[in-house]
Amino acid sequence: MVELQQSSIGLVDYGMGNLHSVQRAFERLGASVVPVGSAAAMEDCQALVLPGVGAFDPAMEQLEQAALVEPLRQWCAGGGPLLGICLGLQLLFEGSDEGSRAGLGILAGRVKALPRRPGHPIPHMGWEPLLPAQPSPLLPAGAPEAWMYFVHSYAAEPADPRCTTAQVSFAGDPLTAAVWQGRVGACQFHPEKSGPSGEAMLRRWLAWLQQSRGQ
């Protein structure tokens, strides 16, 4: 029981569902994943994954109740690697049209409601090909076309467009599909639900994590 988990990935557990699928996706790739529910538990982690399914305000409330808001900000400010998934991407920004609470504010910008257009149902749900933007460890230049599974009604608008690493087309407009800044990355889609393409992306992130250790 007291065996030290070397270079574990901490999966932030704040009661917002779907930890299991994310955990298993990483474990299939040989990573060691531990649920993290407190600031103290983060200390032994090599990297954090911030998952999330649900609505913005309840998620921020849960993070606050778990006393994880400040520790997450400090983790990222201190150069800790973090991967946000779906709602986990949106929480990284300053706020959202979906709620009234402040987000983590780790990335500058806000989360906006998808535009309502006839013939384009919301939630934007289903499989879409990624449109590559700024290359990053998640989506390097020359990566093959990747179809990913999206389920969302909101999308982030980063203040700095250079942090957008992939977009997706919705009703003819490009939306933010994945971001990368420093050592913080996030995707709006679900890599753990995106078959072989999603698996390939998680594998790239793990490889980057190995390469960037100790930097």
Partner: peptide, 25 residues
């Protein structure tokens, strides 16, 4: 590694929570 939905006899928020936490999308 693809999404899935579960239905049948779900009658409360607790019931919803249980299935989503078990890994249903």
């Amino acid at each position: 590694t693809i999404p899935f939905t579960v239905g049948g006899g779900i009658a409360s928020v607790d019931g919803i929570t249980e299935l989503l936490r078990a890994g249903a999308d």
